[in-house]
C-alpha cells in the first residue's frame, strides 16, 4: 500500500475514511423475534425428540403437547421471516434454488424439510389426544429421527447467516452460531419443563436438572460471544447500551433462572411450579434481549458520529 501524500492541515484530507463503508440491512426487532422463535421451535423439537427416543413412556405425556407447540412456534417464525421481506409474496422464491453455500438458502430448505416430520408428528399427537390413534411406533420413530437433522440445521444456520456478513460486530461473532444453537436446546428444555409443570406429568426433576446444566453451558457460549463483541461495543456510540442489554440478557435469561431452579429444590411443591414459571419466562425474555442486542449492532453509529468504520476485516 503506498504512503498517503503529506498535506498540511487538510480540510477534509481524510475524505470518506471516517464513514462506515457497509450498509446495515433492513433487519430490526422482527428479526430478533425470528431468531427467538426459530430457537423456540427447533429447541423444543430437539429436546422432545431426544426424550421421546430415550424413554417414550416417560416423555409421552409431554410430547403430546410439545410437537404441536413446536409447530405453532415454527408458524410464528415463518410469519416473521415473511413479514421481514421487502416483497412478502415472494417468499417461495427462496425455494427455486438450493444453495448450500448460502446460509439463508440452507436455512430455508432446512425449515421446509423440518416442517414435514414436525407437522406429521404434531398431527399424530393431536389425533391421539382426541382419541384417534393407531399410528405404529416405527413410523413415529422414523418421523422423529428424520426431523432431528433438519431441526438441527434450522437452529444452526441463523448464527452463521449473521457471522458471514460484512457488518460490524456480526462479522466478528465467531461464536454466535454456537451460542444460538446451544441456547435453542436450553430454551427447548425450559419449554418442556413448562409443559411438564402444566401437565403435571413426565420426568420433571430430570428436566429441571438438565435445564440447570444447559444454562451453565450456555453462559460459557455467551461469555465467548461477548468477548468477541466487546471491541465493537466500545467503538459504537450506542455500544455500551447494547453491551448492557446483552449482559442484562445473560443475567435475566441465564443466571436468575438458574438461581430460581436451585431455590426450587428447597421450597414446597406448590411454589415450585410458580418458580419454574418465572424462570422459564425469564429465560425467554433474556434470550430476546441478547438477540436484540446483536441484531441492532450495525444500526448504531461510531463514536465519531458516523455510521461505523470499516476496519478491513482481519
Amino acid at each position: 500500500m503506498p504512503n498517503p501524500v503529506e498535506l498540511p492541515s487538510p480540510m477534509n484530507a481524510a475524505g470518506y475514511a471516517t464513514r462506515r463503508v457497509t450498509k446495515p440491512p433492513n433487519w430490526h426487532e422482527l428479526v430478533a423475534f425470528d431468531m427467538l422463535f426459530n430457537n423456540m421451535t427447533t429447541g423444543l423439537f430437539l429436546v422432545a425428540a431426544v426424550g421421546d427416543l430415550m424413554s417414550r413412556p416417560a416423555f409421552a405425556p409431554l410430547t403430546r403437547l410439545a410437537y404441536p407447540m413446536a409447530l405453532l412456534f415454527l408458524t410464528i417464525d415463518l410469519a416473521c421471516l415473511v413479514l421481514d421481506l421487502g416483497h412478502r409474496f415472494r417468499f417461495h422464491h427462496m425455494l427455486r434454488v438450493f444453495k448450500p453455500g448460502s446460509p439463508m438458502s440452507l436455512g430455508t430448505w432446512s425449515l421446509t424439510a423440518y416442517s414435514i416430520p414436525l407437522g406429521l408428528l404434531a398431527t399424530i399427537e393431536i389425533l391421539e389426544r382426541v382419541g384417534i390413534g393407531g399410528v405404529p411406533t416405527w413410523l413415529r420413530t422414523v418421523l422423529i429421527v428424520s426431523g432431528i437433522p433438519f431441526a438441527m440445521g434450522s437452529a444452526m444456520y441463523k448464527g452463521v447467516l449473521f457471522s458471514t456478513t460484512s457488518q460490524p460486530g456480526w462479522k466478528d461473532a465467531r461464536w454466535l452460531g454456537g451460542y444460538l444453537t446451544n441456547s435453542a436446546i436450553a430454551i427447548g428444555c425450559a419449554e418442556l419443563l413448562a409443559i411438564a409443570d402444566v401437565d403435571g406429568q413426565g420426568p420433571v426433576l430430570s428436566i429441571r436438572t438438565s435445564l440447570l446444566a444447559l444454562l451453565a453451558i450456555n453462559l460459557g457460549f455467551l461469555v465467548a460471544l461477548r468477548a468477541e463483541l466487546r471491541p465493537v461495543f466500545r467503538t459504537l456510540k450506542g455500544g455500551p447500551r447494547l453491551d448492557q442489554m446483552l449482559i442484562l440478557g445473560a443475567v435475566v435469561g441465564v443466571l436468575v433462572p438458574a438461581m430460581l431452579i436451585l431455590v426450587s429444590e428447597t421450597v414446597p411443591a406448590i411454589a415450585v411450579a410458580i418458580l419454574d414459571g418465572i424462570a422459564i419466562a425469564l429465560v425467554l425474555a433474556g434470550n430476546f434481549l441478547v438477540r436484540r442486542s446483536i441484531v441492532m449492532l450495525p444500526h448504531h453509529e461510531n463514536d465519531d458520529g458516523v455510521v461505523g468504520r470499516w476496519d478491513g476485516g482481519s
Binding site: V21, T22, K23, P24, P25, N26, W27, D84, L85, G86, H87, R90, F91, H93, M94, R96, S102, M104, L161, F162, T164, T165, S166, Q167, W170, P298, W310, G313
Partner: peptide, 13 residues
C-alpha cells in the same frame, strides 16, 4: 426474482 431479503446488503463489504 429478488424478494428483498436484504442478505446481499449485509454481505456486501
Amino acid at each position: 426474482i429478488c424478494n428483498g431479503c436484504a442478505y446481499c446488503i449485509a454481505a456486501c463489504p
